[in-house]
């Protein structure tokens, strides 16, 4: 069963007086539970593709269907709800809320959903923190954590709502290679445990070996 179906996806944006064609007609489907890596050199369009799948950016044309919902025709409120309920994000620079501790950061998306009791929220968040190996740091603020630890928090936060898809844009880019590998191992493990679809972009060939599938992209086009 396809969790993501993309057809004829293009993305153009103006840059000064010229138009940049970031994506030039992308077509692919992703099955539920896949561990997919989008690879390509810098400027190839992988981040743009990931942003559109994540409902962070709009497509210029084409169709993006996530979990049976055509996202290109949704308003801001609906898009926000899709992001909250269906998608988890792991950013390159471990974007955590600096004033919240580890537990609160992980609880944050669940609290936005407003469909669970406080104790349920806490229990779910604690189980994921435990799963990413940060139980001892549950009360630490992001500034008190290392880069790898922060990215683990981001993974826990991305998974806490039980999303259909987790998107990770170059999740290891700011980590040393050993920590990067640990993070990818963890993502892989979570993919196995939670049956969540993982899509991550990278241009690091060492990272690609962890991917179940690889989607190569160059100059805004898919490369076979």
């Amino acid at each position: 069963m396809n969790i993501i179906e993309i057809k004829e996806l293009t993305k153009n944006y103006p840059l000064g007086s010229t138009i940049v064609h970031a994506l030039r007609g992308i077509d692919f489907n992703i099955a539920s539970g896949d561990f997919l890596s989008i690879v390509g050199p810098s400027g190839s369009g992988k981040t743009t593709l990931l942003n559109i799948i994540g409902c962070i950016d709009n497509a210029s044309s084409g169709s993006v269907n996530i979990g049976g919902v055509e996202i290109t025709k949704l308003n801001d409120k609906e898009i926000t709800d899709i992001r909250l309920h269906k998608i988890g994000f792991i950013f390159q620079t471990f974007n955590l809320i600096p004033v919240l501790d580890v537990l609160e950061n992980v609880e944050f998306p669940l609290l936005l959903m407003k469909n669970r009791s406080k104790s349920e929220v806490k229990k779910r968040a604690e189980s994921l923190i435990d799963a990413v190996g940060l139980s001892e740091h549950i009360k630490h603020r992001p500034s008190e954590l290392s880069g790898g630890q922060r990215q683990r928090v981001a993974i826990a936060r991305a998974l806490v709502t039980n999303p259909d898809i987790v998107l990770a844009d170059e999740p290891t880019a700011n980590l040393d290679s050993a920590t990067g590998e640990q993070i990818l191992e963890l993502m892989k493990e979570m993919n196995r445990k939670e049956k969540t679809t993982f899509i991550f972009s990278t241009h690091d060939s060492n990272v690609i070996k962890y991917a179940g599938y690889v989607l190569k992209i160059k100059d805004g086009k898919m490369v076979n």
Binding site: K77, T80, L84, N95, P109
Partner: peptide
Amino acid sequence: TTEIGMMRAIGARK
């Protein structure tokens, strides 16, 4: 911007 944008990305409404 980063903090607010990230909050919006993970589902915070306006």
